[in-house]
Amino acid sequence: MKLTRHFVEKPWGRTDLPSAFAAPDGKRIGEIWYESDESPTLPLLVKWLFTSEKLSIQVHPTDAQAAARGLPSGKEECWYIVDAEPGAVLGIGTKRPLDAAELRAASLSGEIEDLIDWKPVRAGDYFYIPAGTVHA
């Protein structure tokens, strides 16, 4: 199966990608996805992320939550850090347990960023992020 490179523009993306990626000129590329020409949906999404700013704080559904919304599956992530600037961090989970109301209130007020468990990263680090985990 052949995979095709798909460039995804993001406001936090970069214009200075490594030469191996041959990004379109002037585009702020944040992600490069590899998609199949033969199958509309692969069971695994492989992508590169290139960031120039902080990413959004997200949480992806579990398989059960996705099924309840008519989606084919939830989303777990594995992150392998290929390169990182000094001071780079990845947020995985919160510093303390939050119930739904606390998480919503912190998200709306902007305080969520202070509640995230920020982990320093460097090239070679690997992280598994289960579905349902707040991350950035």
Rank of each mutant, 00 (worst) to 15 (best):
L115I: 09
V46A: 15
W79K: 09
V46L: 15
K2F: 04
L44A: 13
K27A: 12
I32C: 02
V59E: 00
A84S: 05
E102K: 14
H6A: 11
K95S: 09
T15G: 11
K54E: 14
P130D: 10
A66K: 01
K2M: 13
K54D: 14
A101M: 14
P130Q: 06
T15F: 07
L55V: 09
D25L: 11
D83H: 15
I57A: 00
I32M: 06
E38P: 03
G70F: 04
A123I: 06
A123L: 04
L98Y: 11
Y126V: 14
E53T: 08
D125C: 14
G91V: 03
E77T: 13
E31V: 05
A131Y: 05
P18Y: 09
G87H: 01
L45G: 11
E9M: 09
L42W: 04
H135P: 02
L98G: 09
V59N: 01
L98Q: 08
L98C: 08
G93S: 07
G124R: 06
G74N: 12
A64T: 07
F7C: 01
L42A: 09
L115F: 08
P43Y: 05
I81C: 12
V89D: 01
G13R: 03
L3T: 10
V8N: 07
Y126E: 12
A23F: 01
K75N: 13
G13T: 01
P120F: 05
L42S: 09
F127L: 11
L49C: 12
V82T: 13
C78T: 14
A20Q: 13
Q58G: 00
V59R: 13
A131V: 06
K27E: 12
T4N: 08
A20T: 13
E38V: 15
E31H: 03
M1Q: 11
P43V: 04
A101D: 15
L90E: 07
G93T: 06
W12R: 10
G26D: 01
L17H: 00
L108V: 14
L45K: 12
R96P: 10
I81Y: 01
G132S: 07
G74F: 02
I32Q: 01
P11H: 05
A123E: 02
D16V: 07
G26A: 00
F7E: 05
D117P: 01
T133V: 15
L103E: 15
R122N: 06
E38T: 15
T4P: 00
F127N: 06
S39D: 10
P130F: 07
K119S: 10
G30Q: 02
I112G: 03
L103C: 15
R96C: 13
S109V: 05
I112F: 07
I81P: 01
D99T: 12
P11L: 05
R96L: 11
L103P: 02
D16T: 04
A101C: 10
A23E: 03
K10T: 03
S39Y: 10
E77S: 09
I92R: 06
S73C: 09
Q65K: 06
V121W: 04
H135N: 08
C78Y: 14
A106N: 07
D37C: 00
S107Q: 09
P86C: 03
P120C: 05
A23L: 01
W79N: 08
E77A: 14
P24Q: 06
A106F: 11
E35I: 15
V8R: 10
G124M: 11
Y128T: 11
G110R: 02
L115M: 12
G30V: 00
